[in-house]
Each structure stands twice: as C-alpha cells, then as structure tokens.
Design a binder for these strands. Structure first.
Lengths: 341, 341
DNA sequence: CTGAAAGCGCTTACAG
DNA sequence: CTGAAAGCGCTTACAG
C-alpha cells in the first residue's frame, strides 16, 4: 500500500488527528479544512487502513456467519444460501461485512471461537442451524459473546434465536390434507434428534387428533439421515403395505424422490397419493405436477437473525430475543384432487 | 475482552516478545519457557488479538469473495453456493478466512474495492463471475491487487481466471444429440453479452457444421435475460412453427420450464423432443424423465480459483494463470430415445 | 476548531 | 535464547 494518514496530514498541513476527524466525519471540524483534507485524500486516492482503525476503536464491523456441516447436500439445497443472502442484505445496509465459516467438526468449532470470537475478528456470530451445537452455543454463552442462532436451539430460553413455528406449519399442512378428504396421511423423514422435524411431527399429530383421525405409526418413516432419500423412504413405506392417500415429506427434494417411486409403482400424484413437501424449492413450481410445499422464508430467517444481532450489538440493553418467521403454505396441484394428469 | 499479551508476559515472567514468539512458534525458544508460557496462556484462556496481529505483520489472512448481482435467482441456483463452498474448503485448509461480498451496483463495487482492498481488510479477491465487470477488473488491475476471476473475462490475457471450456462442452453435448439421430436441434437462451453462452453457441454451431448439418437461426432463441424462463422461451420457439426433435437449454431449470411447455403441448420428452440442460442440478437426476445435463463442476471452479489466488499470494513470482475445469456430459433419459414414458 | 501525545495489542529487527 | 524499543496506522481524551 503505502500512503497513510500521516502522509495526508502533511500534504494538507494539518495533524493526523484532524485527518482522522475528517475521515469519521466529526461534527466540529471547519468546512474549510475538511474540504482541503478531502481534496488531498482524493488526490492521493487515500483510503484508511481498516485494520488499524479496527484496532484503535475496537470494532471491526465484521460478523461471523457459521454454517454447520457444510456438507455437499446442505449447500446444494437453496436453504442455506438463501439465509446467507438474507443476512448479507442486512449486513450491507448496516455497513457490516460477513465472514463466512463452514464448520463440520468439533475441532473447527473451537477454532472458530478462538480465532474469530476471542481473537477479536468478529463482533458477533450468526449460527445457521441449531442442531447438535450444544457445545458451540454454551461456549459462546460462557464468553458472553453476542450471537443469534437460526433454528430454535435446545436451551431456547437463554439464547436469541429466529425460527419458523414448525408445529404450526405442519399443523396447517396436515389440515390441508384432511380438508382435501385424506385420512391416511404418511409422514416421511421423521427424526428424534432434529428439533425442526420433531416439531413438525407434533404439528402433524395435533392436526390428526383434532380431526379425530388415528395416528398410524406405520405411516411414519424415520431415519437418522436428515436429508434422507425420498425414493428410498417411499420404497420402505410401500413395503409396509399400509394404504395411504396422502404424503408429507420433510423437504421438497425428498418429496420428488418419493413421487418418482410412486410413479414407478404405476400410481399417480395427486390422484392416488397426494404429496407435499417443505421449503418450496424453485422447482416445485415447475415439477409435474407442481408440488404443494411450505415456504419457510429462509431469506427472512437470515435477515431477521442479522437484525437481532445488530440490535444486540448496538443497544446498551442486552436482551434475549426471539423471532418467529411465518411459514406459508403454498398449495399446488400435487395435493389438489382431480387435477392430476 | 481484556487479557493481552502483556498480561501473559507478566504472569509467565517473560517479555511480550517472548510470548509473541511462543504464539508464532518461533524455532529458537527454549522448550522450558515455551512450555511455561503455553501453560499460562492456557490457564488464562488467552487468544491473541488477530486484528493487532494483522496490523503488525500486515497480513490478515482474509480473502474477499465477491458475488456479482446476488439477485434472488442467482443464489437460489446451486451454482454460486457450490463455488463458494469450493472456495471455502480450500480457504480452510490454508487457514484463510472468507469475507463474502454481494455486489450488485457499480457503487457497491467501488465500495468493496475501497474498503476491502485499499482498506487492507482482504489480501486478495475472488470474483465469482466475469460478466460485465470490466471496471471492477480494470480497477483491480490498476491497483495491482491480487485477484482471480471465475469465468473467462473479456481481457482474458491480463487476468488470472478459471473456467470450463464452454465451446467444447456445448460441442460435445450437441454431438451427443447428433449421434442420437437429431438434426433439428434448438438452442435456448442464446445471448450476445454473456461470454459463457456465446461460447456455447459457438460449440453448438461447430458440432452442427462438422456433421454437415444446417444451422437454422429460427431454432435459436435469444434473450437479454440470462436466467430466462424456459417455459416462455419454449412457447416463443413453438410459435415459430419450426420443426425440431432436440433442444439444448442453457440451464437445467430453463430446460424444466421448456419441458413443462412441451408436455402441455401434448408432446413427450424424449420421444418427440429430446432435451438437455447445463449445470446438472440435483433434481435433474430425479425429474421425469431424468435430464441430460452438463456438469460444470462449480465446486472445483471454486477450489481452483482459490488455489490460484493463494499461489499468487505466496509466491514471489507473480504470474497470470488460468485453469480449465473439465465439464462432464451426464447423459440421462431425456435425450435417450425409446426410453420415454 | 485543532494538535500533541498516548494508546489499541501485537511483531520484529537489533543487541546481547 | 531473550528483552527493550520502535513500529504497524489509526483514534481519542485532554488541552488550548
């Protein structure tokens, strides 16, 4: 680089302090000197060293966005990128930068905490996804380091977080099936460790119960593997020989896989089996038939998370916040009877 | 925070210089003192301030990844995230951090350059996508700031870049159609400004010519809008009443849109019209029929770009590099006759 | 309104 | 092998 605040000070015949004040647009600086300094700055194409600045006033304006287990699948799915995009949009408006960290092992977690948080690079952290990150979260809590997690975490009361109301979303989706006349509705991709899915199963059951329908465990397919293969799930489900007319999958891609198997069985969607997914993937609108899905608004999950973090950073009053982002049921032909082809 | 190198020095009865040497694992430090210092560091959970460190030895170990026009679509598509993931994986191995910047206006471009590059936050930049960024690139060149662009830029000889060979990829795809017996092959999503697409059109024409087939401009649909809507494109194409049996779309999603319209016309894929796309989206494997596509390996575009940048950063010998990432033709049922349903 | 000086938390020749 | 001191490029009370 080369040119520093000192050089500008000399050329403009002022002190470094004055240049610094011009840079930060300090109110009590005469218009004249300000103009002169600005001109010199411009002339030399001077731009203050942000690192030095950060060191001096202890603020980097950088937020760490931590993406857990950035496995191939998690990122091919538009969900994470959309959250990231949401976060980035708010960051930009507020003149923050985003440091992206993909974290897949416990070792990497501590590295992130040590280097980014304790090391003073980032002022706050957004944790994209709450699953399993107990240690990460508790460590952050111990440090009293500002952070927001996307996805309701286990220790939900001591942490700021943003999420959909997954119970409610699944409840409404299930209700939609019931209103379409279905009573034997399968649930694909249950999990005993993923809070999101646990909640959705609860919503599903709630809707069934409220409408006086039996909950048939044989219609519920569980798997450790969260981004499970819908095709394989459906195959397993069909083997159980349990009749069904409706199917709720935890993700649109899972639904597509299931539909593929359904078609291979010579059955059609929605006439034989109505199918819906979650996440409202771009393609759900173009698939044949178009897929009913739940839009979880990942973009807004991202924006809101970032907003909460900024609020926490800037207000002197520290609070534990939460935000529920509405999820929208998007009904398409895959669950509308008499429209299949 | 609080605890600094000075505190550790005191507790360990050494100078700050010694602590600093322990931190950076300086060779000539006695095992004894090193151990003692490490113990104290550990005891106080001390982690050096990276900002101060960066300022002192003028190296932040942060790379800026600039994503152009992070519009809704560009990010819902797995292409960018995959490149990002690739870059991140290499970054991590080499102990670099990634600062993500979404840039959609010229104003934001200069801001990135001023703040991140001139401001000394990042040591290098990866530009994801070469389209239109003449000023950005030329500014970076003027600064002699290290950067690599993904996607062959206009001034390709003065810039380090990574890309597929798009001429070759389209050539092979077209050849595949021809070998399947097609001679009237439409080309969806031509462009006169997007280098990627210009190259692909060239590859298409080359294959046609080499096989003695006429190039029918009526079978080529162009649109300014790069991520054009395949459904609309197909509609426009059909209106031209120009018979065709094959269709190449610039993106899988575009292909899906086209297929939708084809189906609505009562025609089937691949028996009436064989269809292929680019980018080998996750869903192309599950769609009905599964879609032939070109895998452009965005992950490797990202890794390779980052590797080139690191090489540039660490070697004393500055060079202008390029890397061609192979694109793989993935043949599926959408272009295989006699397999449609 | 402006400047001199101390300080942010490190690193790195230079001596020894 | 270790320390004292200067320096990285800014900011910010404190005076005036």
């Amino acid at each position: 680089m080369g040119i520093t605040i000192g050089d500008i000070a000399k050329k403009a015949n002022v002190s470094k302090a004055t240049v610094s004040r011009v840079i930060s647009d300090h109110p009590k600086i005469s218009a004249k000197t300000k103009e002169r300094v600005l001109k010199v700055m411009d002339e030399f194409d001077y731009h203050p060293n942000m690192i030095a600045r950060s060191l001096a006033h202890r603020s980097t304006k950088i937020i760490g966005v931590v993406i857990p287990g950035i496995s191939e699948k998690s990122f091919k799915h538009p969900f994470f990128p959309e959250m990231l995009r949401g976060a980035a949009s708010v960051a930009q408006k507020n003149h923050y930068n985003i440091l992206m960290s993909a974290v897949s092992t416990a070792e990497m977690e501590t590295q992130v905490i040590n280097e980014l948080a304790k090391g003073g690079i980032v002022e706050g952290i957004i944790l994209m996804g709450a699953t399993v990150h107990d240690k990460f979260i508790s460590e952050l809590l111990k440090l009293k380091f500002p952070f927001v997690v996307v996805g309701r975490p286990e220790n939900q009361d001591s942490v700021s977080w943003v999420d959909n109301d997954n119970v409610q979303a699944a409840y409404e989706l299930t209700k939609h099936f019931i209103e379409q006349g279905h009573s034997r509705i399968a649930f694909l991709g249950a999990s005993s460790i993923d809070i999101v899915v646990i909640d959705r199963l609860e919503g599903y059951k709630k809707a069934m119960r409220e409408h006086g329908l039996p909950i048939n465990e044989k219609l519920i397919i569980e798997d450790k593997n969260i981004d499970g293969d819908g095709y394989a799930f459906m195959k397993a489900l069909m083997k159980r020989q349990e009749p069904m007319t409706g199917l709720i999958a935890m993700d649109d891609f899972m639904a597509f896989g299931a539909i593929k198997y359904i078609n291979e069985c010579g059955l059609s969607v929605p006439d034989d089996i109505a199918v819906a997914g979650f996440n409202n993937v771009l393609l759900s609108n173009y698939s044949t038939p178009p897929l009913t899905s739940v839009e979880v608004n990942p973009f807004h999950l991202g924006t809101r998370a970032f907003e909460l973090l900024i609020a926490n950073l800037t207000s002197s009053y520290k609070s534990i916040d939460r935000a529920i982002i509405p999820a929208d049921l998007v009904v398409r032909q895959s669950t509308l009877r008499g429209t299949g082809k």
